[in-house]
Design a protein around this nucleic acid. Sequence first.
DNA 1: TGGGATTTGTTCGTATGTATT
DNA 2: GAATACATACGAACAAATCCC
Lengths: 229, 229
Amino acid sequence: MNRSEQICAALRTAILERALLPGMKLPEDTLGERFGSSRTIVRQALERLAAESLVELRRNRGAVVATPSLEEARDLFDLRSQIEDLVICRLIRNFNEDHVKRLNAHLEKEVAAEAGPEPVSIRLATEFHILLAQLTKSPVLIRYVEEIGYRCGLTLALYSRPHSSDCGIQEHREIIDALSSGDEARARDLMGSHLGAVADRALIKPETEGPSLYLDALEPYARAVREDS
Amino acid sequence: MNRSEQICAALRTAILERALLPGMKLPEDTLGERFGSSRTIVRQALERLAAESLVELRRNRGAVVATPSLEEARDLFDLRSQIEDLVICRLIRNFNEDHVKRLNAHLEKEVAAEAGPEPVSIRLATEFHILLAQLTKSPVLIRYVEEIGYRCGLTLALYSRPHSSDCGIQEHREIIDALSSGDEARARDLMGSHLGAVADRALIKPETEGPSLYLDALEPYARAVREDS
DNA sequence: TGGGATTTGTTCGTATGTATT
DNA sequence: GAATACATACGAACAAATCCC
């Protein structure tokens, strides 16, 4: 894995866990210092994140964490439903014991995180969906579930009210059950209403207060990358 | 528009029109010479195309036009159906005269191109779907219809048999009709079977002969960018 | 409005890694 | 298996744009 990919992943996680909030500036050389890399490398990471629509590149004016509109958020969740419907269809055909084990293992992590900080729970909830995609072994599905999942996570950071995150652990459990029992119709239905519920819980409150700038919240993510040298 | 975005667009069109075939090498400095730009700029374009999965970046081994597998192709077309189904749903609610006009104008281009070179017809067929997405005005839908559409176009370059392209002009016409008459069920159904038909016509023949390397086919695309200075 | 400070955009030389003979 | 040719990876320095006082 590249240094630039590492930085990309670290920033992505930081955004997902709300250490970096929508609208925050991401200056190249500040990031370079934090991560112990040159601007070239940071720049690559930012360009990649921009391609994923997690950051916005304003010409000659630097990068900021993206600030998706409510309409975009709605479209993202609708699209997510469509894609993950396909994931369920693909997955249920070859569903096996190993799949159940891995999904349950992830579910345990989610349960364990319930007591801890909320952002981690939110990240884990997104990663449950990504795990489902990974089990299909389809690079195409994995790629788009990841990307849309991250973008949905970002919109949650903007628009969901705090502590709304009964992140649907129970709903995740029911989806695993439906997959195990081979009930395609029920699994698809559950996934559809789960995602609908997540969107409903989330897309209500337009954030009012400006985020508390600045980059110090990034420090733990940067340290992990630096120490990897 | 950036120079690097121009190069990106030129390469994308070249790939779509099959001037650049899957597996062809794309060395940075060769491209730089052709487009009259430095390696840095070309590199940006290649990285972006890699993010779109149109080219593959092999570490320290250069870039090549992507060579999607048949399975990926199948997943891409399935995903495309799911996304464009959503496009139809969104579009039909606010469908108006201007939309009809623009779609028909595009259809005329497709008809006019029928006599000409096949690659242009194929590109226009893809762009019909992109136009539908654009009419929704949803950046999210536009973004993913474009990307998946281009990737499907690339798979057609690999796997469709030559001259299979009755590219479905008649099917496009019927979709416009259904949209005009406000018949959502029929429009969605037509789109679904249209995309299914495109995939069926295409995903049959595994290409045998190696593509005729090399980059000279790129010249017309490069000239357009150079002369833009 | 102007000008200095800051930040991004770009180039290019060197280092590094891969394939080939 | 070593040497060579080739292409990318990276970083320092310069140029241009923007921001802020």
